[in-house]
Amino acid sequence: MAREIPIARITEAVARLCREANLQLPPDVLEALSQAQRQEESPLGRQTLGRILENAALAAQEGIPLCQDCGTALIFLEMGQDSHIAGGDLHEAIQEGVRRGYRDGYLRPSIVRQPFTARRNTGDNTPAVVHTEVVPGEGLKLSVMTKGGGAENKGRLAMLSPGAGAQGIAGFVAQAVAEAGSDPCPPVILGLGIGGTAEKAMLLSKKALLRRVGEPHPDPEVAELERLVLSRVNDLGIGPAGFGGRITALAVHAETFPCHIASLPLAVSFQCHSARHREASL
């Protein structure tokens, strides 16, 4: 017998996660920002990190969103193959959760229909972008990432030549960060998707942003690449808010996947310092 998960629980959970994500930074993000403040050598950079931390405290305390850009609602769904969603349409339940979360939470709706023509705001931040994965077990895990447009706009994909190797990867990422400058709200967290195909690499780079900030990849080779890229990026001098400083990125998270003999896909996703995401297991 499959375990039943009533549809209303999913709507409620999504609504709550959207609100909470926009008001409270995860503890690991706060810790990474505090550590950055201790390490930053630029006085203006330290002051800026202080204001970013003060902003986080004020948002939680006053109930004002961390950022006016309450983001695209990105939902990662890990659905146990032995679970059964009962009582309605799963994807409609998720959209309803986003609708309620944004309306009841005074969160800014930032989604427009007709991306290249009229660009009319849908008014309730729907539709969310949903990625679904079927996994063993009978649970349902929801991760909600509310992703700001400034950082998302800097995302990149490169189909590198396999000979590019680690140095080629680091060079491409450093170049992307240098060109992005202060636009993506540094200090950023960089998600890298390496391998797979073009779209697989992009998705890996996004999922990498859900990892605990600064925790190295368990594979030592990948962890070494993360360190190399972080060091190259933090040599750029962009600093907090782009005002100049050592800490341009808080962390680099890379995920890999096997790929074709002819390919080396590299995807880069930028996450701003307001790295908002929230998880729930139903």
Partner: peptide
């Protein structure tokens, strides 16, 4: 350059940080 989030009851403004000027 800002598009604030909706003002919660009793507040002059919702969140109101800058957007990308370029």
């Amino acid at each position: 350059y800002v598009g604030p989030s909706p003002a919660p009851p009793g507040r002059a403004s919702g969140a109101a940080g800058p957007t990308t000027s370029g």
